[in-house]
Each structure stands twice: as C-alpha cells, then as structure tokens.
Design a protein around this nucleic acid. Structure first.
Lengths: 332, 332
DNA sequence: GTGTGGTATGGGAGCGCTTCCGTTTAGTTA
DNA sequence: TAACTAAACGGAAGCGCTCCCATACCACAC
C-alpha cells in the first residue's frame, strides 16, 4: 500500500495542509514543525503522487513533443536538447510521432483535449501546421522548432539562419574559385528550402555569377535525390564545378554519384551540404557543410515554453540561433 | 472553462455514473440512453481528463522509456518501434535519458515513486542495471531492450542474436576467402561484445583459422576506435585481410583508415560491420553488415509490456529477434 | 479588560473521474 | 396479488492532492 500525504500527516501529528505546505514551501509555518514533517517524509520515503498533484493543480508538469519521425538523423539531437532542459527543470517529456498520418493526429488531438500535458514542442510540422495553429489558438502553449513552413509570427518558434548559412556556403565556394554551382534543394514548399536557395543565389548574383534555373535541381532531402540530381545534370551535359545540397544526406548522395562518374572531390567538383549530421565528418571525403545548432534549438524551444509557464509571455518573433560553417575536405 | 463529465451528465439528463459507463462500455445500460449520451458527448466535444482518469483508476496509460542518449544513431529506431506500438494502443511514451548521470537517475527514481507511469522500457542500462533491477523488484513492470550486460533472466528482456549474427559475418568472410580478420570490439564489459566476439571466433576456430589475441583490438563503438584499431594494426605490421567491427560506426572509421593508408576495399581488405545503421548503405564503399532488428525490438518490448498490463505474465526468458546479414560492396 | 494584528495551523471543499452499493421499475412466476 | 428477479440507472464515497477560509493563540497596545 503506497503511503499518502495523510499517512505523513498522521505520523507527524499535523494536518495534510501543513504537510502540503512543507512540500511546496509556501505559507508561513514554524521551522520546528517543518523539520518534524520533513523527518517523517524521509523516514517514510514519501513522494507525492504526480497524478493527484496534477489533478489538484490542473497542471501536469509534462510537456509533449511532436516529431515527424525518429529515424531522421538530426531529430534525435533536437530532442536531446529539449529533454536536457526539461529534465533539469523536473518536467517530463511525452513523445508523439505523426508517423501514422491522420490517425496519429487524431489520437494526438485526443491527448491534447485530455490535458495530458501543459505545453507542446513541435518539430517541422509538415502538413499539420494548421492543426497545431488551431490548438495554439485554443490556448495550448506551443513552440515550433525549425518550422520549415511560412507561417511564422503566428506561433512562437525557434529556428536557425537558413538564409545566412546558405550565404556563407556560397561565399566559401566563391572563395575557393567556384562560380557554377549545381543546387540540390529540399522540397519547394518548405520555408527552409526557399531561404537557403534565396541566400545562396543572392551571393552568386552579387558576385556576377547568377545561377540559371537549369542548375537548380528540386530534391526532397533524401540520399536518392542527391545522386539523381547529379546524375541528371551530368547526363544532360550541364556545366558545374560545385554542388550545394540543402541537406547532408542529399549531399552525400551527390558525392556518391560524382565519385561513381569518375569525378574527383573537390578537385573537379566541390560539395557543400547543410545540417552537419554526425556522419558528415566521416564521409569520403569529409563533407564541408553548414552546421545547424540542433541541440541548442531544442534547448531554446524548451526554455521558451518553460519560461511561459512561469509567466513570461511567449515571444512573438522567432528565436534564431545562427548556423556555423564547417570547412572539410569536400571543398578544399 | 473545460467541460467535464458532469456537464455531459446534466445535458443528457443522466448521472455521471451512466456517462462513465457509456465511456468505458461496461455495465448494462439501455441502448437508447447510451446513444443519447454519445450524442451529447459529440456535441460538446467532451474528452475525459486523463489526469482525473489516472487518479481514479490508479493507472496512467503512460509508459516510460529510459535511454542512454538520443544521439546514438540506432536509438531512434528502437524508440520509433516502441512508440508505434504504444500509440496504436493509446498509450503515451514518457522519455527519460540518463545523460546527466546520477542526477538523472535520482530524478527518474522520483518519477517512479510518483507513479508517473505504469511501466518501463529500458535501453542498454549501462551502469544503472542494479538500480533498474531494484525498481523491478519493487513491483515496477520493466522490459529491458538489448541488455548488453549479463544479468538476463532476472528481468524480462528483448535482444537479438549477437552470437549468431557474428557467426554469419564470419562465415561470409570465409566464403569470400578471408582467413585472417582483424576484430574491433565493443567495450569488453558489454554482453553483446562478448557474444559477438565468441560467435565470430568460434567459426574461424572451426574452420581451422583461430584468431590470435593480437588481432583483436578492444574498441568502444566509436568512429575513432575504428580508425585507431586499423592504424595500430598497420603500424605494427599485423597481417590481416579483413576487418570485423562490432558496430558500423567503428567499421566506418576502420574503412577510413584503410583507404587513407592506400588499401583498397574489398580487394585488399574486406570490412564487415554490425548494426546496419541508416548510413551504412551510403558509405564509400557501401558497408556489408549484420542488420539488427532495432525497430522490431522496440515493438516487441512495448508489446511485452502492454501484454503484461492485460494480465499476461512477463516472460522470464529473453525474447530474441534474429539479426539478418546484409551483403554490400565492402566485402565483395 | 477589550481590541488589534500577526503568525501558525486545521477543516474541508474541490479537482474530474471510477466504482461500490443501492434503488427504482418493469417484467416474471406462483 | 404478493413475491421475486433482472435490467437500468443514480448516490456518494473515494483516488491523493491543493488551497481558500476559518480558527486558535499570543503579543502588544489602549
């Protein structure tokens, strides 16, 4: 039989109220009784039931995180960042995926209505943004992470400098003498794709080497789109001296296709990725890339949410954590 | 103001009890009243508060998962498997990491005492096994995943065929004519390391090519240990025609060192890994490896736990899901 | 002695459900 | 027609906390 606050109260010869006060450190109470109660708590090994506390207080001290899939290599980093902050603040992290499509979202919605958690962290809510925005409007505290869609402003979010990161990549390529890059993008509808493309193109424009549309291959962040983009470009005889891929996975695919075709990296073609996933340092050759501060983004998102619980209003403009540029052998 | 069961009861002109019966489908009740109640529930969009249900029933419909770190590439797969099963059964998944050492465990222990969840899934509880075993003894349902330690039997667990998987790797290497493999192991204290080593050595023994201790390099599952193992072996002039690494990451490290030294893969040295992480298909050359059924392991563990909640006793012998062997260009 | 103002504590009504006992009603059966 | 039964439903006591609202006590002023 688990022990309850009543057991502690009885043993310490005080009321449950007093025990509760000791537990939560509020209300004025005599130090000697407090000490006595504390002693009993230790003696009995009493820990308040989170269920009961949750009901009584109306808050669960749990935040949910909705992620697209756990098998993308970078997602784990973001979660790790969030979980570190949450655990340190004694919050729990309930994990949901939208792996099973609408059914997932339906069940997730039920959890929201059931008030299973106090707030929500969302990674890249491809296709579910409207739904999330709706929850937000109904009062659920939400922080978006890396919202690749456009609708910033409506909900608080933390993101990174996609535009500037891509600019750096472009400047670097120019610096190592490349003027005719092939670009392999992410899905067109993603905000990050648009930003990365815009930033990259702008630099080449300014340098007097505008990138023609035929050298922009629309990809989808997969390994396959990287190989495909390069293969097609080679087949159609396009002239390019570098590849800028919108994520590392497709950059690795591109490298593979280049090597298969007998090109040397970086002598013939330089390759730059985006993300800096764990593996990028270990490719052959190691991949120059734009490092995304994934962990920091997870941390910032969690901190924003927790601050909101403490009363700080949710910021209405995105928190931006800058990328950094990592030079490796694939470009020099 | 959120609507409660009382609101529904009032609107449907029945008692809370009846609404509860409709909700949970138990007790006898007239189909017409049930329909009426259901209509009101829909109309009001009522969803029972999980907090209140949890308190009243004494169960949270949440299971916790304790993982060492989310940044290891394979952990995500296991979690994904578990989360898929749990979500389908309308359970939530509370994620904890033991990233911050003892402090993490202390807080985790508090959550256990607070009865924040009904059961626990643990991945590779390096160093925390005793603690977990203790919780298990005190009545917390626990299922271990890939317990790399020895203490099987005491707690239910799901694992894979480390021994047989390594045997297959060995047989494959022999089949492609390699008789002098270099082995790069995981940490010695891990059960999986011992099993993989034993299985691998046994096959070479049987084939009349016993592996001398000097060709076994103790590693730690990192990329670095792979490069190091190979580099040292080459420097000390050891004679080997293949590398068997106990995980893919170190295998990739080994490949890197081999290529750097001018060896060709697989012509000069064949390389086999263990895990089949996402990236292994995309290395240069693609890595032959022992595929671990990570996702399936996560699923099986979750299912075992849920079955236990339904009354099925926890199995006292490990659930074993076999590895499969994936042949790629690094060996032929 | 009455009044006033703290300070330390207790009582008990919730929080939103579940569930154990009834109680009511209608439908048998003798 | 009385007695009994089963089906359908309601009352209210929990579950283990929190927190508002007393209440008791004491010190000090008048």
């Amino acid at each position: 039989m688990p022990i309850t606050i009543a057991d502690v109260a009885a043993r310490a010869k005080v009321s449950k109220t007093t025990v509760s006060r000791v537990l939560n450190g509020k209300g004025e109470l005599d130090e000697s009784t407090a000490a006595r109660v504390r002693a009993v708590i230790d003696e009995l090994g009493y820990v308040p039931s989170s269920r009961a506390v949750g009901l009584a207080r109306g808050r669960t001290r749990v935040v949910a995180m909705l992620v697209p899939s756990l098998t993308w290599p970078w997602i784990g980093e973001v979660i790790q960042g969030a979980v570190d902050v949450l655990e340190a603040e004694r919050y729990g992290l309930l994990l949901y995926t939208c792996n099973r499509g609408d059914e997932s979202m339906r069940q997730f919605g039920a959890q929201v209505s059931a008030k299973s958690f106090d707030g929500l962290l969302v990674i890249e809510p491809e296709g579910t943004l409207d739904y999330i925005a709706n929850l937000h409007r109904r009062g659920l505290p939400v922080v978006l992470i890396d919202d690749r869609d456009q609708i910033s402003g409506e909900m608080p979010s933390v993101g990174t400098t996609n535009h500037d990161g891509a600019r750096e990549a472009a400047r670097h390529l120019l610096a190592v003498g490349r003027t005719r890059p092939l670009v392999i993008t992410g899905p067109e509808r993603f905000g990050c794709t648009q930003q990365r493309l815009a930033g990259f193109e702008a630099v080449f424009d300014e340098a007097g080497h505008p990138i023609p549309a035929e050298r922009v291959h629309q990809g989808d962040f997969t390994y396959a789109c990287g190989t495909q983009g390069v293969t097609k470009a080679l087949e159609s005889g396009k002239d390019f001296d570098a590849v800028f891929a919108h994520n590392d996975l497709s950059a690795i695919g591109a490298m593979q296709a280049l090597l298969d075709s007998g090109r040397r990296i970086p002598q013939d073609i330089a390759v730059v990725g985006f993300d800096d996933i764990r593996n990028s340092a270990h490719t052959q050759p190691p991949l120059t890339t734009v490092h995304q501060p994934l962990r920091e983004m997870g941390e910032a998102a969690a901190r924003t949410l927790l601050a909101h619980f403490e009363g700080t209003p949710l910021p209405n403009r995105p928190t931006v954590i800058p990328t950094s540029f990592v030079t490796r052998a694939s470009t020099e």
